[in-house]
Amino acid sequence: MLDQLIDKAARLLQQPSTQEFMTAKLHQWLRTEYRRLEKFLPTQWLSEQGAQVATRAIVSTIADINEDPHHPLRRSFDRYVAQMIRRIEHDEQTGEKLQQWQRALLDNETLHGYMGQVLTDVRGYMQADLAKPDSRLRHHLQTMLKEFGDTLAENKALNHTVNEAVINSAVYLGPQVSDFLTSHIRTTIENWDEREMAEQIELNIGKDLQKVRINGTIVGGLIGGILFFLERGIDVLVSLA
C-alpha cells in the first residue's frame, strides 16, 4: 500500500496541473502575507520558482523512499501501522471510538445518499463501458483473470492455498446456506394461496404437464385399442371353435 501511495504521489506532483496549483497557492500566500514585497519583487516568478523547487525536493524524497526498502520513513510507517493494529485489538477506548465512528457513518443520511449516487454512477459507467465492443473494463477483467490463472498454474503453493480456502469456505457455508434455502422455500410455499400455487405450477411445469397429458392420452388409446383387438380375436376364436 505504501509503495502504491508513493508512486501515485510522485506522478501527481509531476503533473503540470499540480505545479500550477502550487504556484497559485504560493502567489496567493505572498500577496496576502507580504503585500509590500509585491511592489518590489516579481512574486509571480518567485511563486513559480518556489513551486518547482518544492516539487523537485518532494519528488527526490519520494524517489529515495521508493528505492530504499529500509528507509527511515518506511520503518516509521510500519511502526505506526503496527501500533494502530495493537490499539484496535487491545485498547477498549480505541475500539469504542471506532464503533462510534461506525455508528455515525451508518446513521448519516447525507452519506447514504451520496454513496447511493456514487454506486448508481459507477453502475451506469460499467454498463455503458461493457456495452462497447472495445470495453476497457472487459479488457482489464480478462487480463486480470488470465494473469491470475497463469499464476495459479505456475505456483503450486498458491494453487493449494486457494483450493484449501475454497474447501474450508464451502464446509463452513454449506450447512448455513442449506438451512437458509430450505427455510426460505418452505416459508415462500406456505405463504402462497391456491390461485398463486396454481399459477406457479402452470408457469414452471405447465409444459411438462401438457406432455404428460398428451403421452397419457396416446398410451391409453394404444392400450385400449390392443385390448379391443384382443377381445375381438378371442371372440372370433371362440365362435370358430
Rank of each mutant, 00 (worst) to 15 (best):
L5M: 12
I6P: 02
D7F: 14
D7S: 15
D7T: 14
D7H: 13
D7V: 12
K8Q: 15
K8E: 14
A9H: 03
A9K: 03
A9C: 08
A9L: 15
A10M: 15
A10P: 06
L12F: 14
L12Q: 11
L12Y: 12
L12D: 12
L13H: 03
L13A: 04
Q15I: 11
P16E: 04
P16M: 11
S17F: 14
S17E: 14
T18I: 04
Q19D: 07
Q19T: 02
Q19I: 05
E20P: 02
F21T: 07
F21M: 15
F21Y: 14
F21K: 15
M22Q: 09
T23M: 13
A24G: 09
A24M: 14
K25F: 15
L26I: 09
Q28H: 06
Q28M: 04
Q28R: 10
Q28G: 14
W29K: 11
L30F: 10
L30C: 01
R31H: 05
R31G: 04
R31I: 02
R31L: 08
R31W: 02
T32I: 08
T32Y: 04
T32R: 10
E33Q: 10
E33P: 05
E33W: 10
Y34S: 11
R35H: 02
R35S: 07
R36T: 10
R36C: 04
R36H: 05
L41G: 03
P42Q: 01
T43W: 00
Q44C: 00
W45D: 03
L46I: 14
S47W: 00
E48I: 03
Q49P: 00
Q49C: 10
A51M: 07
Q52C: 09
Q52K: 11
A54F: 06
T55I: 14
T55N: 14
R56Y: 07
R56N: 10
A57H: 09
A57W: 10
I58W: 05
I58F: 12
V59E: 09
V59M: 04
I62C: 04
A63W: 00
A63K: 03
D64F: 06
I65M: 03
I65G: 00
I65D: 00
N66T: 11
E67Q: 09
P69R: 01
H71R: 02
H71N: 08
H71T: 04
L73D: 00
R74L: 08
R75I: 15
R75C: 09
S76P: 05
S76T: 05
S76R: 11
S76W: 06
F77V: 08
D78G: 01
R79T: 08
R79A: 11
R79L: 06
Y80S: 08
Y80I: 09
Y80N: 07
Y80H: 08
V81D: 05
V81T: 07
V81A: 13
A82D: 07
Q83W: 11
Q83F: 11
M84S: 05
M84K: 12
M84R: 11
I85R: 15
I85T: 12
I85D: 06
I85N: 08
I85E: 10
I85C: 12
R86S: 05
R86V: 13
R86C: 05
R87S: 08
R87M: 08
